[in-house]
């Protein structure tokens, strides 16, 4: 891929807060038109990385490029951003708040108000268009802020922990909004530590822990870092069964669990049938993103972040 194929990229980003290197040489490249997840435990450096890529704070080292601009500030009108710490003016009406966020990014107020009305209707918040933010529930206010991040139809949408604080219905709405933005042609980056959203949405993802990037690739690539697991239930349990199964096989209820052999399952099945154990049940389970995440980040790092 060439530089122009990336919506944004960063190389060797470093950020120190005091003596602590909260971001320690992170490389990220987000393809245009993709939904890109930035995953990591609490305190991994996700938010700091995103803030540096957007130009909110300056890195202590490394380079970054945002929508072909050498400095993120020069592309800020083409970016939408939902920060981790939500913030709106409590006395503003929902429609005005959305239009204001659009105006900050170069959208004229009239268009901003018109689009705000449409977006609020679409999000099921049409009734709250002229309500002040302070009168909305936390989840509703969060949706309003999210709509403010997309009202100017940005080329790049950056969402920091967008699902936190939303009920399941609104989480579903948000997922639809994210895929809708991707379908419109925007690139979407979001950070999360909830694997289910990332697994459903992300075209690619980066896993960050301890300020370093531990993984970059597709969800399948991440899951592929762990071997598949086999769950085998014999038809006849005989004395020699354990000897036929791989050394890591462990009894689990009426069956056995073991790692998928490197050469595949076929030869093992032949041996089991020949030995007369038969096959009453067989499933090959690919590991989920959650398991891959735990393995990549390390259980110790997760416990330290908890």
């Amino acid at each position: 891929m060439t530089t122009g194929d990336w919506a944004c990229s960063a190389s060797g980003l470093v950020k120190r807060f005091g003596d602590r290197r909260v971001v320690d040489g992170i490389d990220i490249a987000v393809p245009r038109g993709a939904i890109y997840g930035v995953l990591g435990p609490n305190g991994a450096g996700k938010t700091t990385t995103l803030r540096m890529m957007l130009g909110i704070i300056e890195p202590d080292g490394g380079t970054r490029q945002l929508l072909d601009a050498e400095h993120p500030r020069d592309a800020s009108d083409r970016v939408g951003y939902l920060p981790e710490e939500r913030g709106l003016y409590p006395a503003m009406k929902a429609r005005e708040a959305i239009a204001f966020m659009g105006a900050l990014r170069g959208l004229d107020w009239r268009t901003g108000r018109r689009r705000a009305g449409v977006l609020l209707e679409r999000a099921g918040l049409g009734h709250a268009a002229d309500s002040k933010i302070r009168k909305l529930s936390k989840g509703m206010a969060q949706l309003v802020q999210l709509l403010g991040a997309v009202v100017h139809e940005p080329d790049l949408l950056v969402l920091d922990e967008p699902f936190s604080g939303l009920d399941p219905v609104n989480q579903e709405r948000l997922e639809a909004l994210i895929t809708g933005e991707r379908d419109r042609g925007a690139t979407v980056i979001f950070s999360t530590h909830v694997m289910a959203h990332a697994e459903r949405l992300c075209d690619r993802l980066a896993i960050i822990a301890g300020g370093k990037r531990r993984f970059e690739g597709t969800v399948d690539d991440a899951r592929g870092t762990l071997p598949a697991r086999v769950h085998y239930v014999p038809h006849h349990v005989g004395a020699g069964l354990a000897a036929v199964l791989p050394p890591d096989a462990r009894a689990d209820g009426d069956g056995w669990r073991f790692q998928l052999p490197a050469e595949g399952i076929e030869q093992l099945l032949v041996r089991l049938i020949q030995a007369g154990h038969g096959i009453s049940g067989l499933s090959i389970e690919r590991p989920g993103l959650h398991e891959a995440f735990v393995r990549i980040v390390g259980r110790d790092a997760l416990e330290a972040a908890a």
Binding site: R73, Y81, P83, E85, G87, L88, P90, M101, L104
Partner: peptide, 17 residues
Amino acid sequence: AEERSNKVVEVLAAAVP
């Protein structure tokens, strides 16, 4: 202080110098 207390400062800082 208003921006700091209601955390709008992050929205402003992301969009505007």
